[in-house]
């Protein structure tokens, strides 16, 4: 009975082999991850410790780049200016994008007529490329032939007509609202999935206990929606502190007009790559320092927030 003796052994060996080989499969992914994520991260970190003359690395200067970023004019003014814009970006997106998305998702969840259509309609802008979105809204917001001003004029609200993207008071807000329009459908989708995962019985139980209307939302819906709200907040936080594409598509890399649409990522781009036309000088060291600061800031606050919310979720 030689084969019978032999068989269990091979099986075991095979299983061991399988167990080993299974660890080999992530290697290609790990190499890509290491090459394109871990390596650049550390490269940026080391770049930020050196003095740069154009593209040539100069001597080691320690934390001087970081010091310059926060103390030397005009860099520090530009930093705080852009930082403030990122905060406004986050706040307005939380209110107009996520707040509206939450309400819309609830309406769709309650199955109003045409909710299927609405779901698709809200998501549609998301299918467009950011560059296309930026281009379209640039046309709509054009002061002299753009649709918005034309409509305002037709309905007799000439006084509200503006050079939306040229006026420092409205330029950034316009861009953020376009971003909200663009991101609304994604929020609706996430929240809708959240609503749908709430067991129906809970609503019935709530009803029996006499909860209705706002109390139902406050006591049953909100606590159970914490995971969706959490993920949307984190994503919005990261997205608004990395805001770049739409600003770049609509206003270019100078944060125009007069730095009123500058965000940290646009400022970073300008420092590290020297503006749009390719003719101006670069500050690789300062740019890398800014990237490092931004990375630390985003990961720190995101981690903090997640920790806080997880505790909250348990409490509720």
């Amino acid at each position: 009975m030689k084969p019978a003796m032999h068989k269990p052994l091979t099986l075991k060996k095979q299983r061991n082999w399988k167990r080993l080989t299974i660890h080999l499969f992530p290697i290609p992914a790990l190499i890509i991850y290491g090459l394109f994520i871990v390596y650049p991260l550390f490269a940026a970190l080391t770049y930020s410790f050196f003095d740069w003359k154009g593209i040539v690395r100069g001597e080691f200067v320690g934390l001087d780049n970081f010091k310059d970023l926060f103390t030397l004019q005009p860099f520090s003014d530009l930093f705080w200016n852009a930082f403030g814009h990122n905060i406004l970006y986050f706040v307005l997106q939380m209110i107009f994008q996520n707040g509206l998305a939450f309400i819309l998702a609830y309406i769709i969840y309650k199955k109003v007529r045409g909710s299927e259509f609405l779901k698709i309609a809200y998501f549609l802008p998301r299918l467009l490329s950011v560059i296309v979105v930026g281009f379209l809204w640039k046309l709509i917001l054009n002061p002299n032939y753009g649709a918005l001003n034309v409509i305002l004029e037709k309905v007799g609200l000439e006084d509200l007509e503006k050079a939306w993207l040229g006026d420092p008071d409205t330029a950034l807000i316009s861009i953020i609202l376009v971003n909200c329009w663009y991101g609304l459908g994604f929020g609706v989708l996430i929240f809708l999935a959240g609503f749908q995962s709430i067991p129906k019985e809970l609503f019935e139980a709530g009803k029996l206990d006499g909860a209705a209307g706002f109390a139902m939302i406050r006591r049953i819906v909100l606590p159970l929606m914490v995971p969706s709200i959490m993920i949307m907040t984190v994503l919005t936080f990261i997205q608004s502190f990395e805001a770049f594409e739409l600003v770049y598509a609509m206003q270019g890399s100078q944060g125009e007009p007069y730095h009123s649409t500058d965000t940290l990522a646009v400022y970073f781009y300008r420092l590290a790559f020297g503006g749009s036309a390719g003719g101006s000088t670069t500050a690789v060291g300062l740019g890398s320092a800014l990237a490092v600061v931004l990375f630390i800031f985003i990961s720190f606050f995101t981690a903090l927030y997640l920790k806080y919310m997880q505790k909250k979720q348990v409490d509720l």
């Binding site: 991260l41 490269a43 994503l235 740019g287 990237a291 990375f295 990961s299 995101t302």
Partner: peptide
């Protein structure tokens, strides 16, 4: 929690790639 944090770390890292 780990998953969420590493997901977030991944997203924020994307920015830094452009540095190089």
């Amino acid at each position: 929690k780990m998953k969420a944090i590493s997901f977030v770390a991944f997203l924020s890292l994307i920015l830094v790639i452009s540095a190089c």
